[in-house]
């Protein structure tokens, strides 16, 4: 990353380059992002590899699996990227989807035939992605349970009803993904619902509490 640019012949380009050079190199964030970053690190137990003092939550010892799962938490909507980047051998298969999911899933079929080896690997990525989100959600749900009695009943109702709705949707999307784990659209939708769940839990945990 060095300044290798040569002065352009076109004066208009020169003017553009000078204007670009004048842009500030540092811009302070509008709001302090650190509390959210710290919360995400703590909630997701995303630990630096090689830092043994903090326990890792993941069930598997396979590094790729941890990395794939962590990447989903880190990148947000990148579940598909993880899916596409994975190209390893078969992993254990999972139970078949309920019949109801199959018809809805038809429109989300991945184009073209999925190579058999990729199919199992893709399924495993779905499991890993879900595990990572579930782990992060579980931590936030624990915090919510501790705060629950000091939130207003109507707020508790809204949050709990929403969590039930979200969990049903996650179940349905996962069942469909078991049938077609390479479906990019389905993976995106599952990712979207999981992000909604994390966001809802975070927002609920930031609500002001009643004083007793």
């Amino acid at each position: 990353m060095t300044d290798h640019r040569t002065p352009p012949d076109d004066p208009r380009l020169g003017a553009l380059q000078r204007a670009a050079d004048d842009l500030p190199r540092e811009v302070a964030p509008a709001a302090d992002a650190w509390p959210a970053i710290r919360a995400r690190i703590e909630a997701a137990r995303v630990v630096p590899m090689g830092a043994p003092t903090v326990p890792v939550r993941h069930h598997s010892s396979n590094r790729w699996r941890v990395a794939a799962a962590a990447a989903v938490l880190v990148v947000g909507s990148s579940a598909v990227t993880v899916l596409v980047m994975r190209g390893e051998a078969d992993a254990p298969s999972v139970a078949a989807a309920p019949a109801g999911a199959a018809s809805a899933a038809a429109s989300f079929s991945s184009p073209g035939a999925t190579p058999p080896g990729h199919f199992g690997a893709a399924r495993q990525v779905v499991v890993d992605v879900s595990d990572s989100y579930e782990a992060a959600s579980a931590d936030l749900e624990r915090v919510l349970r501790a705060r629950r009695s000091r939130l207003s009943p109507s707020t508790v109702r809204a949050v709990e009803e929403s969590l039930r709705t979200i969990d049903r949707a996650i179940g349905e999307a996962r069942a469909a993904l078991e049938q077609d784990p390479a479906s990019r659209d389905l993976m995106d939708l599952l990712d979207s619902v999981y992000r909604q769940k994390l966001d809802l839990l975070r927002r609920a945990n930031e609500l002001p509490l009643r004083s007793s």
Binding site: A106, S107, S109, S110, P111, G112, R184, D185
Partner: peptide, 10 residues
């Protein structure tokens, strides 16, 4: 009505 054979991916 979705038919993946005719319109994969939407």
């Amino acid at each position: 009505i979705a038919d993946p054979a005719k319109a994969p991916g939407g």
